[in-house]
Design a protein around this nucleic acid. Sequence first.
DNA 1: TAGTTGTGCTATTACAAATAGTACAAAGGA
DNA 2: TCCTTTGTACTATTTGTAATAGCACAACTA
Lengths: 119, 119
Amino acid sequence: MITLDEKSRIPIYEQIINEVKRNILQGFLKPKEQIPSIRELATTLGINPNTVKKSYAVLENQNIIQSRSTKGTFITSKIDHILEETVDSCYNRIIKEINELKRLGISERDILEKIQVGE
Amino acid sequence: MITLDEKSRIPIYEQIINEVKRNILQGFLKPKEQIPSIRELATTLGINPNTVKKSYAVLENQNIIQSRSTKGTFITSKIDHILEETVDSCYNRIIKEINELKRLGISERDILEKIQVGE
DNA sequence: TAGTTGTGCTATTACAAATAGTACAAAGGA
DNA sequence: TCCTTTGTACTATTTGTAATAGCACAACTA
């Protein structure tokens, strides 16, 4: 299921990209499985087909999906790299925030405690 | 010192807001201290005065700076709240990323270990 | 044959950021 | 007094990107 946030600063076409990846990683979409056609997804989301096309083009470029003329669009058979990349970028953003906190004078110990308690 | 990232998705006027806050938090700008005039900062950064004005308007609205006609613009005397708010938003972003990692199947223990080792 | 698929292309719209330009009043220094 | 600098206020324009609109084509399929 793909949901969009119109108010977000992130463009719709990027949101679609992220949502497709999320669906794959959560197991809702599996390798070789067919995903909605450009026109169908556009109708579902109430947006223009060109916007979906743009998302699919990027996803294909990242070897996450594969489009076949007159057939449809399918998840790539090998999706292992997606998880790794997504996790890495998550960690990178966390590290970035931690460094920011350190710069503000918060000790690493305090940060880790707060994170644990906060869960 | 204020630096801008033209390529960033964050608008210039927001970057200025963040930079002013950062300078305060790092002690480069102190309470009641005068900051560059709208025109001066605009010249320094090579941008339009209206853009700086927009940033200053937001900062004044957040009680971080105070503008006085014909005098200039000054840091507010009370800036304690800024640190708290900034730290809170940092933690919130970290929590958000951690939840994302959990959703991807990473255990909290693994996350915390990775963060510690990564530092 | 009719419908659906992805593809490719151009033109247009929509929106927010940023710029350009002008004008004003008030303070302060020469 | 004169000049400069300050913040303020306002409108108009430019710019860049996202998104839309619309069309045409080839190929597959029921």
